[in-house]
Design a binder for these strands. Sequence first.
DNA 1: CATGAATGAGGATTCATTCAT
DNA 2: TATGAATGAATCCTCATTCAT
Lengths: 199, 199, 199, 199
Amino acid sequence: MPRYKDSEREEITGSTRQALLEAATAEFARAGYGDANVNSISRAAGFAKGTIYNYFPSKRALMEALIDEIAELHLRVVVEAVSQVEAASHRLVRFFDTARAFVSQHHDQARIMINTVYGPDEEFRLRALHAYQPMFRLVAEEIVARGIAQGTFRAVDPEPTSRLLMTIYLVMSSHVASDGQPWLDPAQVVEFMLRGLEA
Amino acid sequence: MPRYKDSEREEITGSTRQALLEAATAEFARAGYGDANVNSISRAAGFAKGTIYNYFPSKRALMEALIDEIAELHLRVVVEAVSQVEAASHRLVRFFDTARAFVSQHHDQARIMINTVYGPDEEFRLRALHAYQPMFRLVAEEIVARGIAQGTFRAVDPEPTSRLLMTIYLVMSSHVASDGQPWLDPAQVVEFMLRGLEA
Amino acid sequence: MPRYKDSEREEITGSTRQALLEAATAEFARAGYGDANVNSISRAAGFAKGTIYNYFPSKRALMEALIDEIAELHLRVVVEAVSQVEAASHRLVRFFDTARAFVSQHHDQARIMINTVYGPDEEFRLRALHAYQPMFRLVAEEIVARGIAQGTFRAVDPEPTSRLLMTIYLVMSSHVASDGQPWLDPAQVVEFMLRGLEA
Amino acid sequence: MPRYKDSEREEITGSTRQALLEAATAEFARAGYGDANVNSISRAAGFAKGTIYNYFPSKRALMEALIDEIAELHLRVVVEAVSQVEAASHRLVRFFDTARAFVSQHHDQARIMINTVYGPDEEFRLRALHAYQPMFRLVAEEIVARGIAQGTFRAVDPEPTSRLLMTIYLVMSSHVASDGQPWLDPAQVVEFMLRGLEA
DNA sequence: CATGAATGAGGATTCATTCAT
DNA sequence: TATGAATGAATCCTCATTCAT
């Protein structure tokens, strides 16, 4: 006799996994991948050391799941914000606004992402870049190419432009100066980018 | 009676130290600080593992010395390139040209620096930022403020502008896509920045 | 579901811990604290080297646990022996008898204790003296003060007298000449002390 | 051509060796044999690391020389004090007085000696005991046997009695409570020993 | 004799991972 | 699935000692 119905089990399992991912987020953000302690993560999630290995085959796999999850979350947030306006220049403003919002609401995730993208582990870097591909595409197509089509932006190549925008975006998404002030001034960034893009 | 004359000794210890720093550069670039092996560094430099501790009291101290050294090297390169032209806009072009040159000629150093600036170790991050202060100042004063004074640039605030330029610069200085192509297109970056700055 | 019931687990961890302490006793007695090898201890106890760190956070902590354990054992032995007779002078005889018994039955513990009490590590020395406080008190109150109250001993100050008795006792408890003969003659010690104390 | 005449050389050599021994005394007293740093000793004596190996073939040999030197010094001090009076009981008083004097004037030496005699290194222990043999003999013959011959002391066996006296003496020579007060009360010790010995 | 750069054995400690229950 | 005791590879660092000058 099963202790739980399948749907319940899934929920439970899902929530355990989620709890582990959340604890992992905090730990990886705090200490970085290398110094993060797997056992601490499991315990912080309210489970024993070994439990984490029922959900993730290794520390690396846990990190990989986290990278994917963060990229998905990040994409959702950006899509949500950007899709609410139509004009490409408004979308660009929304896009950079999101960076500020993300770093304050998902500080740990932002930290992990920047550490990963600019970190020494090539495999993780590539995975992160891959996971962010949809966002690169979003910027290239739904903002840059769209702006060109709308006649607002000049005819730049959307691909490298997307990379430039994303580069600045990612730094803004994660970097906070020691006094809590943003490292980059969002208004200035938007202004520079709009000037760079305007037809 | 001393084994070597002072000048000789200085040469020896200086060159040993330099060899160790070079080996450390390669190792830290390859594996990142956490996974770098101190013993390997010493051996890669042609010495026994313990030798490195005659020159650096700890792995951290070695890393700190490296951070400082890289920042100094980087500054020298940039000063050299920028100071050869007078017009602020030319200097800006030179500045971003340097990024390309640095990443190809000092790939390991560039890697270490980006890993450090965006890495999880707060102490290292702050040290790197501090070590790069002269370069931030250079950009703010010798390029941005200068361009404003020359009437080429509009009256932006040099400080945050310097941060924006440096942010893009550091990414360019270190980031190479897997196919060896630069991650950001220098020409585009320059164009965007000039548009953002032009009076 | 737990791997063991609580009682079982306690038994297991208790016995493992005990095995480690026993191995540590042998190793510390053989080599002294400084030259003792933590990994050897764990292996001597039948475990992998890392296991000891599941029970003691550091080599020092292991030593501290050992000091406390030995002092407790020693006290139990002495209390047992002394409490069986009533007359203070008989108790004194019993007390010194115990020293002989202890050194032969708990040779390693005796060795560790003397090494610690007269060793260079101030922290360990103080901990050992502190751990032996109950025994100092026992001698002062249950033997010396008692003898004075019983009219057997003259009115010496129990405190310093206890220290003198304990000093000789500890040396007797641990010191064996190379030929296996006791370093101090128990009969003579008792005689001298009784002469010193008699009313 | 010799840089110095033989006599001068000897003096110089002798003083270097002496300086090294003095530095070693401080270091061994401070840290114990195991944690003492040979290089620090050499530097503390005003020489380079390697110099110490021109005078002592190894750390152990240095320690052995120190043990011998301390025992000789200690013996000289005791002989000096004891030989000034004739009566055995006076000599006993003088003997224990010396302990107090020694611990305050030669604190480091006293520390090293007690650490050695009750330390884990069997070789050192035996060497120390051997080096102290003249003092054991002195006590046995010049105090105990003499007292018996003089009719002051009862006919105890001088050998074990000497060991008892020396045991207490060594502890007194080295042990100081944390408040700077002597661990054992010299007056009480003398009283107990005289009572133990008196005819 | 003096020097100090170089050596490398040795050891405490961490922690991802396994697995019997 | 959950548990946590056990594992052992991996590594930073210390320092006694050597030796070329």
